[in-house]
Amino acid sequence: MSEFKALVVSEEQGRYVSNVVTRRVEDLPEGEVLIRVKYSSLNFKDALSASGNKGVTRQYPHTPGIDAAGVVESSSVSELKAGDEVIVTGYDLGMNTAGGYGQYIRVPAGWVLKRPDGLTLRESMLLGTAGLTAALCIDKLEQGGMITGQGPILVTGATGGVGSIAVAMLAGLGYEVAAATGKASQADFLKKLGATTIVERSELEAGKEKPLLKERWAGGVDTVGGDILFNVVKSLRYGATVACCGLTAGTGFQGSVLPFILRNVNLMGIDSVEQPLVVKASMWDRLSVQWKTDLSSIEHEVGLDELPQQIETILGGQMVGRVIVNLG
């Protein structure tokens, strides 16, 4: 098969427009592994790429999709053979390399992981970069000494992809979870995922002018950044850690050193894009076995034709849970 369907974003008269078009395999970038994509997922970075954000994607026309799961069609390396089921997340996929919103991708072998036995291709994309990021956050928190029974673990942006998976995973691991959101209507959704407390976003925005706030959280997964992140830092219990992985509330970060030197707290950065493949493999193994979580309640499956509307939804801050893209 030399032709396939792909979502392509083009610049037209100063606007960025998405259309499903026919592409040729021969036009894909160079790489050792050609993969027939079965599933992808929708992430905030994909929406930024689709809307012309030059910090994510420099040249258009372009096919976004930072996640892909599928079957090896051909390979020039011995480690990967035709018929192998594989996962690709991050690196340059969907940024400046044609991504998972096409039925075929061609990528370097160093980006490709064989599917863990405990996950189907579809389940791997229900997780995708969001699940990998949540796992990296929890791993970092546990390295920092977080254990169950110490108190509530706060998750900000809890209805989004990373947030909702983090809530479900933490609850499944036995942690007490406080879910922060600006969507009060989604309280029942978050409680079904395992949250024991719902925190209004406005509550986390209060007191940004103060150097310290009342000790409250035994740990945190922050997906939003900005003033909310530093208010979380100022509210950590002595010795606790927050893992930072998002910026939807802004990239600015202003605060004082007092929480760090008076309460011995930790702020840990999380990047899921350029992690060495061996680290990603370790996280995927955990996600497929001891950290495997039922996420059926947060999924919404769409085809390529429905993606543009879903992209508008996530850009508008209205996305809840995870969108799986079926390229079958």
Rank of each mutant, 00 (worst) to 15 (best):
Val265Met: 07
Gly207Asp: 04
Trp217Ser: 06
Gly163Val: 02
Asp84Cys: 05
Gly90Arg: 07
Glu142Cys: 04
Leu327Asp: 02
Asp139Met: 09
Ser185Gln: 13
Thr129Glu: 00
Ser256Cys: 12
Gln143Cys: 02
Leu127Thr: 04
Lys192Ala: 12
Thr97Arg: 04
Trp291Val: 10
Leu304Tyr: 03
Glu306Pro: 04
Gly31Arg: 09
Ile35Pro: 11
Glu12Pro: 05
Thr159Leu: 13
Gly321Ile: 03
Lys183Gly: 05
Ile298Gln: 01
Val232Phe: 01
Ala6Glu: 08
Thr196Asp: 05
Ala109His: 14
Tyr101Cys: 10
Leu262Glu: 11
Lys192Asn: 14
Arg58Leu: 09
Glu11Gly: 02
Gly239Asn: 02
Ala68Gly: 12
Phe4Met: 13
Gly157Ser: 10
Leu304Thr: 06
Ser164Thr: 08
Asp27Phe: 14
Asp67Tyr: 04
Leu213Phe: 07
Arg36Val: 03
Asp271Gln: 11
Ala158Thr: 03
Ser41Gly: 12
His300Met: 09
Gly110Glu: 14
Lys208Tyr: 12
Leu121Phe: 09
Tyr104Trp: 10
Gly128Arg: 03
Phe44Gly: 06
Leu258Lys: 00
Arg216Val: 11
Val325Arg: 01
Ser288Asp: 07
Ala187Gln: 07
Leu173Glu: 05
Ala195Asn: 09
Gly99Val: 14
Gln318Ser: 14
Ser49Asn: 08
Pro116Phe: 00
Ala130Phe: 04
Val167Asn: 01
Val86Tyr: 02
Asp188Pro: 10
Leu173His: 11
Ser51Pro: 06
Ala171Gly: 10
Gly252Thr: 06
Met125Asp: 05
Val8Phe: 05
Arg122Ser: 13
Met125Ile: 09
Thr196Tyr: 06
Lys140Leu: 13
Ile138Gly: 05
Pro259Phe: 14
Leu141Pro: 00
Thr181Arg: 09
Asp305Arg: 01
Ala69Asn: 01
Glu203His: 12
Gln309Ala: 13
Met1Cys: 03
Gly182Gln: 14
Asp84Ile: 02
His300Val: 05
Arg58Glu: 08
Val167Glu: 00
Ser78Gln: 15
Ala82Glu: 10
Asn266Ile: 08
Gln143Tyr: 07
Ile314Lys: 00
Pro152Gln: 00
Trp217Cys: 02
Val21Ile: 06
Glu123Gln: 15
Val224Asp: 10
Thr22Arg: 10
Leu213Val: 04
Ala240Ser: 09
Val17Glu: 04
Gly220Asp: 04
Val9Leu: 03
Ser41Arg: 02
Thr159Glu: 09
Thr197Gln: 15
Lys280Glu: 00
Ala166Gln: 00
Thr129Met: 07
Asp46Cys: 10
Ala243Val: 01
Arg15Phe: 07
Val20Phe: 00
Lys292Leu: 02
Gly70His: 09
Gly225Phe: 04
Phe253Glu: 08
Gly194Met: 13
Ala206Cys: 07
Cys137Ser: 11
Val21Cys: 10
Gly31Asn: 08
Phe253Val: 14
Leu213Arg: 05
Gly239Ile: 09
Val77Tyr: 09
Glu26Thr: 15
Ile147Cys: 08
Ala180Phe: 13
Pro116Tyr: 00
Asn264Ile: 02
Asp305Leu: 05
